[in-house]
């Protein structure tokens, strides 16, 4: 028996959120006295996959068939289920993302497994198996019992603390995994992929600097970008900003956009409407810069500055540069 953890690859490296999932899965494995096995699908060097060992995995299955290069939830779920069957996995862990949810869902249907997505903490395992997850876009939590034999957990960023130092010195054994693939999973043809590969992905970013309508126009974004650069941060925005095409749609954060959970979220000229907060309430520390002392965002903030963003941003950038 085992705990199986699916890790998502990005350009040949394991995503940070997936490393968290490995640490999470290893802790679950420890609790139930099983081993933690990792499944990676797509291209990656062995040295990269060995990282999973540092987070507690004893074995990595690597499915590197060329047909699997392109993200494909149908085929990946099929591979995942075959790995789970080979390893007699009772618990399957994935990091929350569009792909993670799709894979988890399809695997759950194949295995008739109870699925809980948005898990925020390690499960309580005793007479029953209980997990806590975020509901109502971060406004509450639900503790749910999973009763099925096989259990699937999709884990939110920051559900477990990890640091960069290895937790284990056990070398993970890397094995090629070559299950049969089904033709019907490859019916779609991709005609265009636009990936802003140079940009930090918002869902993975530890620091996000985000701008709202208070930035007054797309031509004013440079001071915000400068601060983001100085901090090594990704940039985000409120919904009206992307609706107005001041910033690209994929930067839109909130209830109807991306949900983020960085260590630090810096909101510049964003009022803090509840739909925006729904996307950021997983952040560890929130800084709000707004000229209106009554802006609702201050109620959700850890640090606040009342003032004009265009005066404050350069000062922050200067201070951030002198950090290094």
């Amino acid at each position: 028996m085992s705990v199986l953890i699916y890790v998502e690859l990005d350009n040949g490296s394991i995503k940070k959120t997936s490393l968290e999932a490995v640490a999470f899965g290893s802790k679950v494995a420890e609790k139930i006295g099983e081993k933690a096995v990792v499944l990676a699908i797509g291209h990656a060097a062995s040295a990269e996959l060995e990282k999973a060992g540092n987070y507690g995995a004893s074995k990595v299955l690597h499915a590197a068939d060329a047909k699997l290069t392109h993200e494909n939830a149908m085929a990946y779920a099929d591979v995942l289920v075959q790995a789970a069957s080979q390893e007699s996995s009772k618990v399957i862990i994935l990091a929350k993302s569009g792909l993670g949810d799709a894979l988890a869902a399809r695997a759950a249907a194949k295995l008739k497994a109870g699925i809980v997505s948005g898990v925020t903490a390690l499960p309580e395992i005793g007479d029953s198996f209980q997990v806590t997850r975020s509901i109502f876009t971060g406004k509450a939590f639900a503790t749910t019992e999973i009763k099925s034999d096989i259990k699937i957990l999709v884990v939110r960023k920051n559900a477990i603390e990890i640091d960069d130092s290895p937790v284990s010195t056990v070398q993970a054994e890397i094995t090629a995994f070559t299950p049969p693939l089904r033709d019907e999973d490859f019916q779609a043809s991709v005609s265009k992929v636009e990936k802003a590969s140079s940009e930090l992905s918002l869902t993975e970013a530890e620091i996000i600097v985000s701008g709202g309508r208070g930035m007054k126009g797309p031509e004013n974004w440079q001071p915000l970008i400068d601060l983001a650069k100085a901090l090594g941060a990704a940039t985000g925005c409120s919904k009206p900003v992307s609706d107005l095409d001041w910033r690209p749609h994929h930067e839109h954060i909130g209830q109807t956009g991306i949900k983020v959970a960085p260590n630090l979220y810096i909101a510049c000229g964003i009022s803090g409407a509840i739909q925006h907060l729904a996307g950021v309430n997983g952040s560890k520390c929130i800084v709000v810069i707004n000229k209106d002392p009554e802006a609702p965002f201050f109620k959700a903030a850890d640090y606040g500055i009342i003032g004009d963003v265009f005066e404050i941003l350069p000062k922050l950038t200067e201070a951030a540069k002198s950090l290094k």
Binding site: F141, A142, T143, T144, K147, K299, D302
Partner: peptide, 21 residues
């Protein structure tokens, strides 16, 4: 397959620390 047992609300944030502009 799964049954919710209990709901909880997040612990309220402490006061926001204000820094003069």
């Amino acid at each position: 397959l799964t049954t919710p047992q209990k709901y909880t609300l997040p612990t309220p944030k402490g006061a926001c620390k204000m820094i003069p502009a």
